[in-house]
């Protein structure tokens, strides 16, 4: 164990306290107080590295060795936001080549892809560089391993919106959905590209749903969408829509007793709610006709 590059070169890891270039620095122990609680039994390498990190933080040292130290510290605990924040201060202070840092954080992200700090570090670098040319590729590499990784999607949405990189997104989503049509993250991304409107007023949607229903499909998700359409239409006064209170009652009863019993109480609640909406609707009408 040493730093991220240790996979490639198998050099022996030397504790910071045994490194000649750190001889001038007095390590700073963690101050947990006299009676520590939730105390972690750190490995020797962890404690050694963080003793020096605390020393550097205390003197606000901005140097190549401090930069190297933050690399080890972030490797030992990638969730230590103080380390990453301080590393960014050093990068700025030394005016480092940020493209090198992009390569470095890419390696880290590919290993630690469910971590807030590493993605945030990447985002700050992209902001500083104003160059998002490598971002779609990176998120695709992460999503290839876990197509629902929240951080990767969030980063991807941010670069698409910020740098106007919408081209090709629909095609990319299509490939993900053909791999797994149940990937809800991909569906969410698709919505980023589309307008939203009432379901019950979209003829394509209603036709498709009704045909499915008539073909004998009683998937609870289909029935739930039909209930939503009833709610929408009853709520808006309905008119001659087929999505009525009676239809909602029939669907909810089927859901309660046959297709979705775990949500029985919710479906009863939906009947009550839609009934109440319908009653309010007729009262409004009665009210307006007398005026």
């Amino acid at each position: 164990m040493s730093d991220y590059s240790s996979d490639e070169n198998e050099g022996e890891f030397v504790l910071y306290r045994n490194r000649p270039e750190w001889r001038d620095v007095t390590p700073v122990k963690q101050d947990d107080g006299e009676e520590p609680v939730v105390a972690i039994d750190y490995t020797e390498a962890y404690e050694d590295c963080y003793d020096y990190f605390r020393a550097v933080l205390k003197t606000k040292e901005v140097s190549e060795r401090a930069l190297e130290l933050t690399q080890t510290a972030s490797y030992l605990n990638p969730a230590n936001y103080t380390v990453w924040q301080y590393r960014r201060e050093i990068l700025k202070g030394l005016n480092k080549d940020l493209n090198e840092e992009l390569d470095f954080i890419q390696k880290v992200i590919l290993k630690q892809s469910k971590n807030y700090q590493v993605w945030h570090h990447r985002r700050v670098l992209v902001e500083w560089l104003q160059d998002a040319s490598k971002e779609k590729y990176l998120t695709e590499a992460v999503l290839a391993k876990d197509a629902k990784n929240y951080h990767a999607w969030q980063h991807r949405q941010w670069v698409i919106k910020t740098f106007n990189l919408y081209d090709g997104e629909l095609e990319y989503i299509d490939t993900l959905l053909s791999d797994d049509v149940r990937n809800n993250s991909a569906w969410n991304q698709r919505l980023l590209l589309h307008d939203k409107g009432g379901l019950s007023k979209n003829k394509h949607v209603t036709k498709f749903c009704e045909e499915l229903y008539k073909s004998g499909n009683h998937s609870p998700f289909l029935l739930a969408v039909l209930v939503d359409m009833c709610y929408e239409q009853v709520n808006e006064g309905g008119g001659d829509s087929v999505y009525t209170l009676e239809r909602a009652k029939e669907l909810c009863s089927d859901l309660m007793t046959k297709y979705d019993t775990v949500r029985a109480k919710y479906w009863q609640y939906m009947i009550d709610t839609i009934e109440k909406k319908a009653r309010e609707g007729t009262e409004d009408e009665a009210g307006s006709s007398t005026n």
């Binding site: 939730v38 105390a39 103080t82």
Partner: peptide, 24 residues
């Protein structure tokens, strides 16, 4: 037992120690 001692497997939560207190 975790109030007193956590093994080095908890190093990944070294920046979340107040969380550990609350979770316990």
């Amino acid at each position: 037992s975790t109030i007193v001692y956590l093994s080095h497997a908890y190093e990944c939560l070294d920046a979340s120690r107040p969380w550990l207190c609350y979770w316990i």
